[in-house]
Amino acid sequence: MISFLATVGRVFLAFLAHVGRMSAFTAMAVSHTVRPPFYPRLILRSVIEIGYFSLPVVGLTAVFTGMVLALQSYSGFSRFAAEGAVATVVVLSVTRELAPVLAGLMVAGRIGASMAAEIGTMRVTEQIDALTTLSTNPFKYLVAPRILAGTLMLPFLVLVADIIGVFGGYIVGVYKLGFNSATYIARTWEFLEPLDVISGLTKAAVFGFLITLMGCYNGYYSKGGAQGVGAATTNAVVSAAIMILVFNYIITAMFFGK
């Protein structure tokens, strides 16, 4: 019985230590993001890496999501003669929900993993210690530019995904399901409100922050050579994906929970 309680206590203490370490890391990361010196060159590199090189994967995800959504909603809604709502369903689903969540998950796989692997490798090869000995704060040099770029670029990617996703729905709607082009576009705009897009972009900014934070955090504290870096990479993607889903609900409840 005692040993069972000791195990529970050890696990609980380890959990608290982990939460404390992550909170301290987040506070440090945020404070260095807003305090000079800044590294424009590194911010630009991360902006290109996250914003530009993620475009193909996010674009492909969005276009096929929009296309599938149009097909599914058409076949479902035709059961109660509501096919006319396809364009509206596509645009609301994409802007409010699917574009931010799917783009977030795709970027978590692409960027979160690569950040954790890169920073993790720097940790185990003493490159982060070398930064410190060269009078450079690793938080400012490695973490802050990535978090800044992630928070800024995810909304941009989601905006692109919104447009491409809606376009995917339009392609299927007009060329496969036989909707009139002008009517489809009119239906798309008819019920779309600024808040639909704004809520999606807000989610994107939060997801961008979480993805880069998890990538940097897991990489920064990785240890034990190649195996440790591998574990850090897995943890970065899994924790970012879970946090995206949790925060997706929280933000949705904040915007539309009334």
Binding site: T125, Q127, D129, A130, T133, L134, S135
Partner: peptide, 26 residues
């Protein structure tokens, strides 16, 4: 100044940028 066991050179930077790192950033 510090010479690390494994070198700890920044592999994303060129050799001269590694050497000049403390001058440029520090």
């Amino acid at each position: 100044g510090m010479l690390f066991q494994g070198g700890a050179l920044f592999d994303s930077l060129k050799v001269w940028e590694n050497v000049a790192f403390g001058l440029i950033q520090g």
